[in-house]
């Protein structure tokens, strides 16, 4: 399976983005950085309070691939997505998306870049007072001047892609969790982005919804020539669709490779995480003095 060399033509938007002209006038020269790498992270450090979330990590995401970042809860996976999209600022290091340093852009530049990124939030993040149709239409109304009939066709197409064309008049609170995520996905692809970021797409989904999402992510990636970044701790589902896997824990990248490579990795860390072992380098017990000592010295209540 090699999804790395997708035909660059298929990544062209369907002439929807009325401001696609923006792209031409950006600083980058179209083919100067036409390397294989869409997102490049170098020397990234980020701390929250006293805690070091990332300690000098390097990470590359190839164009057209589905790259998964896995790690235990609290290892900063969502933080990584927020850093890539410029919602958070790193303490050190640089993140380049399509040749642009995300954290050097001004607000207008950042917003221009974000129009080419779609993000799927854990909760879906649908606007609760708008219908499914209006939610998907929102970014289109916001950033394009399409005629109502064209807009309608486009929204219905996007909804068709996630199988929810029939649910267009429902409100978000009438949707199941899996449906809400699919609507959010339709909204994320409304502007035909360059890349899609998924924040824990499988968490809390029943097996059927999960299967649908897994298939959908892969399908969208290949059909529209996207680049997908997936953050998850659901090992099996993630491994089944990812081309490239990163495992992070305690601020470090502890493993990187294809799913097959990681499945064969002998390191204790990777084994514990991939196989879901209860004890290993990551301990079952929260750090504490020994039980005996605790009984003796702090026995009073």
């Amino acid at each position: 399976m090699d999804y790395g060399n997708t035909d660059p033509l298929s990544r062209q938007p369907l002439a929807v983005d009325a401001r696609s002209a923006d792209r031409a006038c950006m600083r980058e020269q179209p083919f100067a950085t036409a390397s294989d790498v869409l997102v490049s992270i170098r020397g990234l450090s980020f701390r929250r309070g006293d805690r070091l979330i990332f300690d000098n990590i390097d990470l590359d995401i190839r164009r057209g691939s589905v790259t998964a970042v896995m790690g235990p809860s609290g290892s900063g996976k969502t933080t990584l997505l927020k850093l890539i999209t410029g919602q958070l600022h790193p303490d050190a290091g640089r993140i380049e998306v399509d040749g642009e340093d995300v954290h050097r852009l001004d607000k207008a530049g950042l917003y221009r870049l974000r129009r080419r990124m779609g993000m799927l939030f854990q909760s879906g993040a649908l606007l609760t007072d708008l219908t499914v149709f209006e939610n998907v239409a929102y970014p289109l109304r916001e950033h394009t001047d399409l005629s109502p009939s064209l807009l309608r066709k486009l929204v219905l197409l996007k909804l068709e892609a996630v199988g929810l064309r029939g649910a267009r008049d429902l409100l978000p609170n009438e949707l199941s969790g899996g449906m809400a995520r699919r609507v959010a996905l339709a909204r994320a692809i409304a502007l035909d982005p360059l890349m899609l970021l998924y924040d824990e797409p499988f968490t809390g989904q029943d097996p059927i919804a999960m299967g649908m999402l897994v298939a959908l992510i892969r399908q969208l990636n290949d059909a529209a020539g996207l680049t997908s970044i997936l953050v998850s701790h659901d090992v099996r589902e993630t491994a089944s669709i990812a081309d490239d896997l990163y495992v992070i824990a305690e601020g470090q990248i502890i493993a990187h490779g294809t799913p097959a490579e990681l499945a064969a990795d002998p390191s204790a860390w990777v084994r514990q995480f991939m196989d879901g072992l209860p004890d290993g380098p990551m301990h079952f017990h929260y750090p504490a003095p020994s039980l005996e000592e605790d009984f003796r010295t702090r026995g009073t209540v």
Binding site: Q87, R115, G118, M119, F121, Q122, L126, L127, T128
Partner: peptide
Amino acid sequence: LMKATEQLSGLEMMAVD
């Protein structure tokens, strides 16, 4: 609630302030 349900972040990611 919009903040808690990531609607505000969602808007920001759609390049809407």
